[in-house]
Design a protein around this nucleic acid. Sequence first.
DNA 1: CCTATATTTAACTAATAAGTTAATTAATGG
DNA 2: CCATTAATTAACTTATTAGTTAAATATAGG
Lengths: 107, 107
Amino acid sequence: MREDRLSLKLQALADPTRRAMLARLRLGEATVNELAQPFEMSLPAISKHIKVLQQAGLITRSRHAQQRPCQLSPEGLQEVDEWMKAYRDVWVDRLSRLDAYLQSVKE
Amino acid sequence: MREDRLSLKLQALADPTRRAMLARLRLGEATVNELAQPFEMSLPAISKHIKVLQQAGLITRSRHAQQRPCQLSPEGLQEVDEWMKAYRDVWVDRLSRLDAYLQSVKE
DNA sequence: CCTATATTTAACTAATAAGTTAATTAATGG
DNA sequence: CCATTAATTAACTTATTAGTTAAATATAGG
């Protein structure tokens, strides 16, 4: 039902655990165990979250011994940002109009 | 499980039907029937999508006779945008580094 | 080869999401 | 008041999601 890439990304982002993982990855790459550390959650659950992020194109993975570290995919959020652009204009526009209105009332 | 406002918004956005509705609303407010028109979907289904958008704070509603038109909530996406900010820096940073690297290789 | 560590896969459960049809509520206008 | 139009609620089905535990796979090192 929801197979387009943008939906996949937004769906992946709509989970606080996964967003926390991304926040961690902003500091640099991390292994599964490192990512799991702050959460009271089984490793398989973590593994699944990682898979969701990866399939959404938000992270990439590498190999190092028996570890498979994760890293932020730099261009991963671009698609989301592109989508937001159009709306950013709308709301900036409206907020500034509201602002103008409030100014005019005040005077 | 997923009750925070940001998750609610991203979850609401992670559906192409709902995003299409928002796109329509960029042109101006619309009634439920107007929003439903492009979709092969029952009205109750549309009604539910609208509720999701509203509860996420992405749209507001008014009343006019027996209609309850929807309008974009201008500040609705701001929270998402705020969240993205931090990542925008990361990826812009990395992409520009990549760019610089490619430049240096070329020379 | 054996063991320890890192991670994933399998199999399952419970909750949530997205849709349906039928029935209900709300407001207008004759 | 009655019929019409607009939208929602109720009740239900099906698929997906997020988690669990137990078992399996992969790699390194002695």
